[in-house]
Write a protein that binds this DNA or RNA. Structure first.
Lengths: 189, 189
DNA sequence: CCTATTATCCTAAGTATATTAGGCGATGCA
DNA sequence: TGCATCGCCTAATATACTTAGGATAATAGG
């Protein structure tokens, strides 16, 4: 019986593609086995279990998003950097809904600490260098940015904006404008 | 064999309680059957399928959140109303993580249109009456509010704020302050 | 009060996913 | 080339979802 040439890496990458096609929650070891024309149990030679596969996809997704974020903020500052980073999030969510969902997969603390999520947070902080905020305001602002990026993309993907008129793209640019203004005149207690 | 007195309503309510205890994704017909000491297949006399049960829990969750929102906004205006509505979201997410997750269960369009989600959106618009915004800016602002409320609560529940210093409660109040300022001086194109 | 009907719960059976244990042939290194 | 390891297999178990059809408890009508 010819070998399929499976690898943990190939399984995770195939799972990532599948996630965008059928949704992250629908990615299953059984579905992957079918894709590689292999029996389900054979996958256990390469991944510990279904959770491990999903965690792998999550790490891959975070890595891709962090890479795009790094590229977006490189050589940019101030509002230009903010807009670029904001668009990276929204565009990534629209282009890769499955991977975007994967980014929110619950990783254990140790894994999360070494994930690209840390780099992503650093990108948020990097953007804030263009706005003179000192601690703890900078952390507050990081949390605000993360909330808006995540929340908007989540709602848009869920179709929550489908039934009201203005194009979400307009709302997005107005939202980013508003955030920029907020950061420039951050309300000090 | 004595009857357990099952009802679609009782099942959905029990499922809602279970969601907060073990997580919305973990709520299963089998788990409910165990709770009521009944065979799994017996539940099908009351709910169509597992999807129907989860949709029911989602509708219940939206209803509860909308009720809290309506109560918070009643008799308040301006920033006071904004703060109250914002806190309703965050407090609900913390007190009922399972129901908060249920709120994002994908409902078909017809069901969503008759759900309490519509009422919830009206509460957001009601708060904006305290800030003189005209269309389409009002819709943009509704989307901004929804994004921040959802995003912040999601990140906090996921533990994303666990490893940086300031208390999330501080970030939250600063965030709401910032939103208030943004709405008062909404950047017109 | 008794009967007919209905609704509630059951057993049985089939499907799907996840997981473990153990076997066998293919691969690759000594 | 011999052999140890690796890659994939079959087999078996556990859990969840779903449908079909049977038995009994509650209920309504005569």
């Amino acid at each position: 019986m010819a070998r399929a040439g499976l690898t943990a890496d190939r399984l995770i990458r195939a799972g990532a593609v599948l996630a965008d096609e059928i949704g992250f929650e629908q990615v299953t070891l059984a579905a992957l086995a079918r894709q590689f024309d292999v029996k389900l149990a054979s996958l256990y030679a390469h991944v510990n279990n279904a959770h491990h596969l999903k965690a792998g996809i999550a790490l891959l997704a975070l890595d891709q998003l962090a890479a795009l974020a790094a590229d977006a903020v490189a050589g940019r500052a101030g509002k230009e950097a903010l807009v670029a980073l904001a668009n990276v999030h929204r565009d990534f969510a629209r282009a890769h809904p499955g991977l975007f969902a994967a980014c929110r997969f619950e990783l254990d603390d140790a894994t999360a600490a070494t994930s690209a999520g840390v780099r992503l947070a650093q990108m948020l902080r990097a953007v804030l260098r263009g706005y003179s905020l000192s601690e703890p305001d900078q952390t507050h602002a990081v949390r605000l940015l993360g909330s808006v990026f995540l929340g908007f993309a989540t709602l848009e993907l869920a179709g929550s904006f489908k039934h009201s008129l203005p194009d979400p793209a307009n709302s997005w640019s107005r939202t980013v404008d508003a955030i920029d203004m907020t950061l420039r005149s951050w309300p000090t207690k």
